[in-house]
Each structure stands twice: as C-alpha cells, then as structure tokens.
Write a protein that binds this DNA or RNA. Structure first.
Lengths: 342, 342
DNA sequence: TTGTACGCGTTATCAA
DNA sequence: TTGATAACGCGTACAA
C-alpha cells in the first residue's frame, strides 16, 4: 500500500489532520510544524490520493472533454487536436486534469457523460461540437451542470455559455472576397448539415449573394462529410454541371484538399479555372499546391477561451450566461483569382 | 447532495451493502431483491460515485495517456489523434476511461505522471513517444507500474512492454524501393534525432545503402523537426548541393509535404526531377499533388494493441514483458519514378 | 441470502 | 496552534 497521510503524521509526530492542513498550507499552522511535516512527506515520498481528496472535497479537479463520437474519420481533422491543445494549456495552468469521452455512438456518449457528471468524475464539461437537435445540452442545462459549448447552440442560445467564431460573418466575407474578384457563379460546399457551423456558414454565403444581388442557386449548394472523400465527390459533381461555378466556398480545408485533388484529376486548374476559399487555415493549407486561401478561425484560442469560461462557471455557479466570439481573418494565398473571361 | 447507495437502500428496504452487491451483480443475491433494488436505483436516478468506488476498490478504471509535451506543433501531426483513437476504442470496450497529461515541459510531465501514479488516478499508462535518454521509463520500471510504450525503448528493451513497427525493416524497404527504381543518390530526411523512431529509420536507410553497395554520404543525411517548416529547409538545403540527390526518404508525411512545397518554389518537379517516399501514410498523402508514395504503419492498430497489452499488464501483474510488432506496407502512389538519365 | 462493521485516504468541524 | 472525530460513498470480510 502506498504511503498515506497517517504515515507522514506518525513520522512527524503530529495528527493526520495537521498534515492535511500543511498540504492545504493553512495559515494557522506554525512554520516550524510545517517544516517538519514537509520533511516527513519528502522523506517518505508522500503523494496525496486523488480519490480520497475528491471524495472529501466534492471536487475532482478535472474537466471532461466530450468528443463528437470520435468515430472514424472525424478525428483525422486537425481541428480537434488543436482545440484540445488550447484546452490543455488552460487546464494545466489551473491545475486541472483532462478526461476524455471514448464513446462513438450518441447513446454511448450520453451514458458516459451521465456517469461522469453524476459520478462526480469531472467538475465541468466542454463540448467540442454543436449538432442540431442534440439532447445532451438540454440534459446538462436541466442538471445545472457547468459546461461550455464550442460552437453555436442550435437553440436556447442565451442559456448556454459558448465560444464560437462569427461564422455567418466569416462566410459573408469569404463569399464577398470571391465576388469582389469578379465571380458571379459561386458554389458552397459544406459538411454535415446537422452541424450548426455548417448552417451558419451556409447562411453567410446566402446573405452575401443576396446583398450582391446574385441569385441563390440550389444546385450550387452541396453537403458532404467534413473529409476529403466528400470533397472529391463534390468537386466532380459541380464540374459536371452544364453551367459550372467559377468560385467555391468550402467549409473546411480538408474538404478543399479533396476537391483540389479531384479537380486535378479532371484537369481543372486552381485558380486559373476555378477559385477556392475555405475555412480553418490548417497547417496543410499553407503547404499544398496551390496554397489555399483560407479563413483563420483561431482554433487554439477557441479551446483556451472555452476552458477559461468553464472555470468561471465552476467557481461561481450563478454567473450570467456568456457568449464569446473569437475573431477570424482571411489569409490570402494562391487559390483565388479573377474568373476567366470567355 | 447526490443520491447515494444509502438512499437506494432505504427505498428498497435493504442494507446498503446489499445495494453494493447488486451493483456488482453478486451471485448470492436473490433475483427478487436485485429487481427491487434496481427499481429503486432507477427511480432515484442513482449513479455510483466514482471516487468512492476507486477508493474502496483501489482501482481507477482509467488509463493515462502521456503525450510528448503537447507543445506547439507536434500535436498538429495527425499521428496523435489516430493513436488516441485506437486507444480510445479499446479503452471503451473494456469500460475504462482516458485521462491525458497536459504538461509541456519534461519537468511538468514528470510531475504529472508521478502524481497520477502515486495518487492512484490511473491504473496504467501509455507513453506515446520514445525518446533517447527519457528518465520517465526508468522511473516507471522502478515503481513497477504498468505501462506500455508506443515505439521502441531506447534501452532496457526486454524490460519494457512496447508496441512498434519494425522501422528499420520499413526503412530498408523504402530505400530499396528507390534503389530498385535506379536511384543511386538517395538522401534521408529525419525528424528530431533524439526520437528512437528517427534513428531506426535512419539505420534502415544506411543498411539498405550498404547492402546495395552504395556509399553513405553524410551530407545526404538531414535532421529537422517533424514538421513542414523543417521539410522546407531540408528541401532547399539538399537541392542547393553541387551533387544533389535524386531520391528522398522522408521520415514523416508532413515533412514530405513541406519538402514538396519548397521544391515547387524552386521549380523542382516531383517525381520527374526527384523522387520522394515517406512514412505514416496519413490521409493527406493521398490528396496532395502528386499523391505521396508512403509507408503505411497502421497507426490506429498501434494504439489499440498498446491498450490491449496494457490491460494484460494491469490484470496479471507478473506477466512477461512483451514486444508487439505492427505490420507496415508501402503504398505506391505518384511521387516516385526512375531518375532522369542525363 | 442478507446485515454488521470496518476500511479506503482525506478534509472539516469542534474542542482543547 | 493542534488533536480527536465524524463525514465523504462504497466494498467486503465476517457474522447471522
């Protein structure tokens, strides 16, 4: 068995409760006893038992990360590691640990979250996705459990603390960027339509078209997975139309890569034949050819701000619900050009 | 306060210990009591307190993942999410949770691991990297704490259960692949030289050259970070030599991307002017242009096998040390061709 | 088959 | 300033 507080107490000739106070650095313990106790801890190699502390404290010093069913390909997207890095940094600074869900299906995740929450395994949660109709958020609200959403809530927006980009505005700017280059036939390629981020970017796209007096053409709106394979299919689909678009707004860099790949196969050149702007500004977007013009959304900051907000919620339980908007910025590279004049 | 085992006991008119036995599904509890107790649990919405269980059980039902100081760019490499996915799948299947380190510096990580281990926060560890001179492994061996290394131990190989590819052999095959195409001037571009995976692949490269009767030229061996920027620099360096290589063995797909990018800038074409084979077969290697010929190392399996092995260690503490080799395979794409004949 | 009583390691309250 | 003692919620010999 490991060395406990009692062993330390014995060696230091004090009561276990005194040792506990030394650990907490209580102000009403003499410097002298503190020293002797600390020496005893050192000598025995004492480490506090996490579960005993959590049990007595009613606090786990741990936050939970809820992944969108890390099933298959989604996790290939560097978006997640980057948010997690942001979360990790803040958590570490606050001496909190990180616990991750492992489930794949909605039911598994729901069960996990329930046992994490009720089992007091975590003090708060960060949800890494926002999906339309997600019951989890409603559940957490009902439980009054501290959590922060990364993304925009699909509903109950002012009851849920969340951290997001202004995706509508970002999509407006991206679309305007193409329009300003002279494009009048712009298509939108988005990910799974049940993700709020997709609908937001789609709405921005539509607004920009309307503002510019351009028609919204349904055949120019394509939904695919947030992945390359989706991108490939979308690319081929669009280019096989009688009146193909000259500009593409793509909801994710990875999809954009897939699209570029499929365009290359059918000998369509970027940006000579078609322009392409996408979102997230992942590292790869700088190193593919041509380098992608992409909207930087500061993923790391998304994670760290969310964690910041979560700690507020954990500390003061009756805080007003908050909304944090992380800035975005178009990074111009080489995937966009004026349309060809016939 | 949450609903406890006592509340359930009261409602079901039994002793708390009986409830505990029902949770453990003890065989010596009548089906009838089980039913009534379960009904009571259902009705009250009972969830077991994780810390109390762990404290009584001396087991956390959690494994820890030690990241190589998730600092900065390393985590951009899709390698990590993929291993974690493998780990996650196995952990979930065994009803174990996952806890992650958050530290960046070696000291932070060491401290974290120590408190995780001694604080009984995790039942076992998986190290996601193998670095020459890493004190952590020695420490864990001394503590006789269950852990599995992903990669090859730099020392004490038969005291450490580990899961790895045969990176030497893989590098031999990759190099031979270029040699068989007719290349005689092959360079090696590796990552941080303190990572064992780098040295293994470098050794394989050297062995293949020797076997083929080709000289080992020091100026053809370059070490950079496992990242694109490293790749860029390496690419420019090599091509500026008086006698530049015609074939490149690159230790990581991401670096290969960086190299391709820099080659494009100085108008060197792949594979016409130079051939390129790399490792890991990440998704992007299929979607860049030209698509990369890469060595598939089955990252997901690396993670799941490691977790499997860890559970063995956790269950039977006196198990022989094991070594698991995950197969690899060259995936041919379009980045290699015979050298130009002058 | 079920209840009693104690231990798991720590914190917190109340005395002293 | 420190000590004794009761929680925290659950598991488990031992008894019944």
């Amino acid at each position: 068995m490991a060395v406990t507080i009692k062993d330390v107490a014995k060696l230091a000739n004090v009561n276990p409760s005194t040792v506990s106070r030394v650990i907490a650095n209580s102000s009403r313990i003499s410097e002298k006893t503190k020293r002797t106790v600390r020496e005893a801890m050192e000598q025995l190699g004492y480490y506090p038992n996490h579960h005993a502390r959590s049990l007595a404290n009613q606090s786990a010093q741990t936050i939970g990360i809820v992944l969108p069913g890390s099933g298959g390909e989604l996790f290939q997207n560097p978006f997640f590691p980057q948010v997690i890095q942001g979360i990790s940094k803040e958590a570490h600074a606050n001496h909190y640990g990180i616990y991750m869900t492992t489930g794949i299906t909605k039911e598994e995740i729901r069960a996990e979250v329930l046992s994490m929450v009720h089992g007091r395994r975590v003090d708060g949660l960060i949800l890494l996705y926002s999906r339309i109709g997600d019951e989890l958020v409603d559940l957490l609200i009902k439980l009054r459990f501290p959590f922060v959403l990364i993304g925009k809530p699909y509903i109950n927006e002012n009851q849920i603390t969340h951290v997001d980009n202004d995706n509508i505005q970002a999509a407006i700017e991206a679309t305007q960027y193409l329009i300003n280059l002279g494009h009048t036939k712009c298509a939108f390629i988005g990910g799974a339509p049940e993700l709020v981020v997709t609908t937001d970017r789609l709405n921005g796209y539509k607004q920009a078209l309307t503002q510019a007096g351009l028609p919204i053409r349904d055949e120019y709106i394509v939904h695919q997975d947030f992945l390359q394979e989706g991108g490939r299919q979308a690319g081929q689909l669009l280019m096989s139309m009688e009146d193909p678009p000259t500009g593409l707004i793509v909801a994710d860099d990875i999809m954009a890569l897939g699209i570029m790949s499929s365009l290359t196969e059918i000998s369509v050149r970027v940006p000579e034949d078609i322009s392409l702007i996408s979102f997230n500004n992942l590292l790869i977007s700088e190193y593919c050819s041509p380098p992608l013009t992409s909207v930087e959304i500061n993923i790391f900051q998304l994670g760290s701000s969310a964690t910041d907000a979560l700690f507020q919620l954990i500390k003061e339980t009756e805080l007003p619900t908050n909304r944090f908007i992380i800035p975005h910025e178009i990074i111009e590279r080489a995937s966009c050009a004026p349309p060809k004049t016939k």
